[in-house]
């Protein structure tokens, strides 16, 4: 095991034993990761901050149950993902109810695609694109959104996505695939205009 992993395990152990300095250090180590993750899933600073606080309260209360069998960051992502899912269940948003039933044209390959501009990231300065990106990801049901953000933004392995979301590997792959194609389809009108 690497020195980095040993240091982290020692930090987690001290935090599990209630050492306030270790707890603070652990929070500071993961605060940005969790905030970024929450923001990318919620697309709102207020919701991301609420999720960050709720997630850390859950993490600290469950810390003693961490058994070192999984990667600590994967364990954290699982708690944050559950926190997000519970929050959305409470809100009972109906915008995603029909997602699984409706036909998804983005799942089919068309005969003609227009090439997108070479540096789309520069277009982030474009408010219309940012708004479209926010709306597109918010139109994705949370379970697909979480899979996409964990895989493509947080750069987890597919196996870690499956573990974090407590789903099978084929289910994780299917969610990532559908999310990528759905978002691509939603952004296309702006990219080829």
């Amino acid at each position: 095991m690497s020195t980095k992993n040993n240091n982290e395990m020692a930090l987690i152990k001290a935090a599990q034993d209630g050492d306030p300095k270790a707890l603070r250090e652990l929070v500071q180590k993961y605060e940005k990761t969790i905030y970024n993750f929450a923001f990318k899933v919620c697309r709102s600073e207020d919701d991301a901050e609420d999720t960050l606080q709720e997630a850390f309260l859950s993490i600290l209360s469950a810390l003693k149950t961490f058994n070192y069998k999984s990667n600590f960051s994967t364990w954290i992502y699982r708690i944050v993902s559950n926190s997000c899912l519970m929050k959305w269940r409470k809100e009972k948003r109906d915008r995603w109810e029909s997602f699984e039933e409706i036909d998804h044209p983005e799942d089919r390959i068309q005969d003609n695609y227009t090439r997108w501009p070479d540096s789309p990231a520069q277009q982030l300065l474009d408010d219309e694109l940012r708004e479209q990106m926010d709306n597109a990801i918010l139109d994705l049901p949370p379970k697909y959104r979480l899979a996409f953000v964990l895989k493509d933004i947080e750069n987890l392995k597919v196996e870690e996505v499956a573990e974090s979301l407590e789903i099978s590997l084929p289910a994780a792959k299917a969610r990532i695939r559908r999310a990528r194609l759905f978002l691509r389809d939603k952004l296309e009108p702006l990219m080829v205009a």
């Binding site: 090439r115 982030l124 953000v149």
Partner: peptide, 28 residues
């Protein structure tokens, strides 16, 4: 286009402020 979709979402980074850190540490 699929690759660029992913890169657009990767490029969009929020900022985490000192104020947010203070609030978090207070709550915890």
């Amino acid at each position: 286009s699929v690759k660029k979709t992913v890169s657009l979402y990767q490029a969009y980074q929020p900022e985490f402020s000192e104020n947010q850190r203070d609030k978090l540490l207070t709550i915890l």
